[in-house]
Computed example of a mutant assay.
Amino acid sequence: MQYAALASGSNGNSYYIANGQDAVLIDVGINTKQMELRMAKLAINPASISAIFITHEHSDHIRGLSVFCKRYQIPVYITAGSYKGSRLHLPDHLVNIILPNAKIEIGTLQVYGIPKYHDAQEPCSFLVSNGTHNIGVLTDLGRACDNVKHVIKHADVLLLEANYDEEMLEKGRYSFYLKNRIRSGWGHISNKLSLDVFLENRTQRLQHLILSHLSGQNNTVELVHETFAPHCAAIKLSIATRYEETELFDLQSLSLEKNVLVRVEKYSAQQTSLFVNESSSV
């Protein structure tokens, strides 16, 4: 499986996941020109996208949807509440209304809707699987509900929201109303809450954590890295930014790298043990 964050943040979100010839997008929150430019940098052909899944109707998740899906004639999967809230009028033949907990098969991919708490009409996150490996895309989380915890426990790759630093939000220029909306349990989760749910539910199968949907006003890449890096020595850690796409990651290559790292660590441990034993016999 291959995957990338094409855009991530309050200015726009879009995530690419593929298994062989089958490829999907989660959200199209930047304009079509930017989508095409960022995909070109990763050698992704927009015409290769089999389906688009929309998490909810906020503009940073659907801003480029109408033009992009019509230009490339890509089916859109969206809940009834999200479609109504979007006020978009897409061609009927491209619109597929789904339940928030739907399971949709796109070629060799299974896409699972994950209902969540967020201040939208019928929002859901998504987990994408090829039957062996699971990639969870969990952003715009009002709180770490049981659905979120379940995905973390079963993810090989996890794109997880770390939206704001609590102190920066409290001292920042946002209005009292907006601050309360963000931290109300229906908005977003902080770096601290994200770390807590990650540590409580991660398993040995997790290979790659990508922190996502960072606030431009109330967070920094440095703060997120400082928060998570001490807990990610055994896995790959990345941070998706609002300014550019990530690299195109390959899960098979990542697994090989992890196996090599484990073998090196075991070899180093054996050599250290041998040295200690030899030293003690002198």
Score class of each variant (00 low, 15 high):
residue 147 N to L: 00
residue 109 L to A: 11
residue 98 I to V: 15
residue 224 V to N: 08
residue 21 Q to Y: 13
residue 18 A to T: 04
residue 125 S to H: 12
residue 185 G to K: 02
residue 138 L to D: 03
residue 132 T to I: 11
residue 117 Y to G: 01
residue 43 A to Y: 14
residue 261 L to V: 11
residue 155 A to D: 07
residue 271 Q to M: 15
residue 74 I to W: 04
residue 144 A to Q: 10
residue 116 K to Y: 05
residue 52 I to C: 00
residue 32 T to K: 08
residue 150 H to T: 15
residue 214 L to P: 02
residue 151 V to K: 05
residue 65 L to R: 10
residue 236 K to T: 13
residue 18 A to R: 14
residue 119 D to H: 15
residue 261 L to R: 14
residue 218 N to D: 14
residue 111 V to T: 08
residue 245 E to V: 09
residue 143 R to Q: 12
residue 140 D to T: 08
residue 30 I to E: 13
residue 105 E to Q: 12
residue 142 G to E: 01
residue 270 Q to S: 14
residue 26 I to K: 03
residue 258 K to C: 03
residue 197 V to P: 00
residue 108 T to Q: 11
residue 203 T to I: 09
residue 215 S to P: 06
residue 204 Q to A: 15
residue 149 K to F: 02
residue 233 A to N: 15
residue 120 A to W: 01
residue 199 L to W: 06
residue 63 R to I: 02
residue 157 V to W: 00
residue 93 H to Y: 10
residue 90 L to V: 07
residue 49 I to M: 08
residue 237 L to A: 02
residue 43 A to D: 14
residue 10 S to Y: 09
residue 94 L to A: 02
residue 209 L to V: 10
residue 99 L to M: 10
residue 60 D to A: 08
residue 225 H to P: 04
residue 65 L to K: 13
residue 229 A to P: 06
residue 60 D to R: 02
residue 215 S to I: 00
residue 71 R to H: 13
residue 270 Q to D: 11
residue 251 L to N: 11
residue 175 S to P: 05
residue 38 R to C: 01
residue 269 A to W: 06
residue 204 Q to L: 12
residue 211 L to R: 14
residue 155 A to C: 02
residue 95 V to D: 03
residue 10 S to A: 13
residue 57 E to A: 09
residue 151 V to G: 03
residue 122 E to M: 13
residue 104 I to N: 07
residue 281 S to C: 15
residue 264 V to T: 10
residue 32 T to D: 12
residue 34 Q to D: 15
residue 258 K to G: 02
residue 110 Q to S: 07
residue 187 G to H: 09
residue 142 G to Q: 13
residue 219 N to A: 15
residue 25 L to W: 07
residue 153 K to C: 02
residue 21 Q to N: 14
residue 92 D to P: 00
residue 253 S to E: 08
residue 138 L to H: 04
residue 133 H to L: 06
residue 142 G to A: 03
residue 243 Y to A: 05
residue 261 L to D: 12
residue 247 E to R: 15
residue 277 N to T: 09
residue 258 K to H: 13
residue 244 E to T: 15
